[in-house]
């Protein structure tokens, strides 16, 4: 493809190979006009060559467009767009991945929307998001505020807080499953040592989701901190100085200046956390597998189980589209609502 782009217009090679019958250098005459008309209605000789060059130029331009776009367009088409459309198609069928598909129209959707199980998995997912977001935001903000001060070993601390972010979810889930082991886990040993109650964590239906929330927040704290720290550092110091001159105290400055000016970063954190939060899966699968007794099953876990455990791929696809719709609606609402509370400096 790069070769096609490489041959410049008007080069002898392309002129010869493409326009063999028209190489006579005679001035425009009746015969040549008829000849060119026979070839497809081209005008006189001089315009022909100009048009010829614009045509090869156009081809060349198209060649460059294809050269730059196809490497991404082809995989995105085959591995994203086609599955996207076929997922819609599958969601309108009853299908166990093996026997032929059976058309059911929108029945998968109506069944799911009326199903108690759907409401439960969405509720669990919502509990996860609602529990997780305040912890990572408050924790991340505190760490960011602390690291925005003059501190010795600041970059070491920042790197330490960020370490769990690069660790994979599966590792984090396993490490915390062990830390939160009800009998000989570290957390319960510490709680016992302090004379506090020791929850059953992932073995107890009431504590399974909190266990997942705790470990997820621990992993993402550093991510939120880095985003908020970057936001804090982009606030100009003279705004703070001016407020100080006007006699405001640190507390007022935090609420009136820092938080409002940090709102674009906060917005980013909230949007990303909600999008990722509604898609929570890895840590739940590893820590609780949705249990005990389905008490921590989340939407994506349900999609996985429907497909690969119960052979109900049609319903699974429908559920994935319902989830997508929910995420999309929430994100659109946030983007619309941001005008009211996000201040771009």
């Amino acid at each position: 493809m790069s070769r096609r782009g490489g041959t410049a217009a008007g080069q002898p090679l392309s002129a010869v190979t493409e326009q063999v019958p028209d190489t006579s250098a005679t001035p425009p005459s009746l015969s040549s006009v008829t000849a060119s008309r026979r070839r497809g209605g081209d005008g006189g000789h001089a315009p022909t060559s100009r048009r010829r060059s614009t045509r090869t130029q156009k081809l060349k331009k198209l060649g460059w467009v294809l050269f730059f776009l196809l490497p991404s367009a082809i995989p995105l088409f085959i591995f994203t767009l086609v599955p996207m459309v076929s997922s819609l198609w599958v969601s309108l069928h009853k299908w166990n991945l093996i026997s032929p598909m059976e058309w059911v129209g929108l029945k998968n959707y109506t069944n799911l929307l009326g199903d108690e199980m759907t409401r439960r998995v969405f509720l669990h997912t919502l509990i996860y998001v609602v529990g997780y977001l305040p912890i990572v935001y408050a924790g991340g903000l505190l760490l960011a505020l602390a690291l925005n001060q003059k501190l010795k070993g600041r970059s070491f601390l920042r790197a330490t807080y960020f370490l769990p972010v690069v660790t994979s979810w599966v590792v984090v889930a396993l490490v915390w499953k062990w830390l939160l082991n009800p009998t000989n886990g570290l957390v319960n040993q510490l709680l016992g040592g302090l004379g506090l109650p020791q929850p059953g964590w992932w073995t107890d239906p009431h504590w399974a989701l909190p266990a997942v929330i705790l470990s997820s927040a621990w992993k993402d704290l550093g991510f939120v901190m880095v985003i908020l720290l970057a936001g804090l550092q982009s606030i100009p110091t003279d705004v703070h100085e001016a407020a100080k001159v006007d006699g405001s105290n640190a507390w007022q400055r935090f609420w009136r200046i820092t938080l409002p000016l940090l709102s674009p970063s906060t917005f980013f954190v909230v949007v990303i956390s909600l999008i990722n939060g509604f898609q929570v899966f890895d840590q739940v699968y590893v820590m609780t597998a949705g249990g005990p007794a389905g008490s921590s099953q989340v939407v994506v876990g349900q999609i996985y189980d429907l497909t690969f455990r119960y052979g109900r791929a049609g319903e699974a696809s429908a559920l994935s589209w319902i989830l997508f719709a929910v995420i999309l609606i929430i994100t659109v609402f946030q983007i619309r609502g941001q005008r009211r509370w996000v201040h771009y400096a």
Partner: peptide, 21 residues
């Protein structure tokens, strides 16, 4: 726009058909 559309679709929507593919 098509590129951006693929950005918004989460993996779980694609998992089943991608697996079949």
């Amino acid at each position: 726009g098509f590129y951006l559309a693929t950005l918004m679709v989460p993996l779980q929507v694609l998992v089943v058909p991608l697996f079949i593919e």
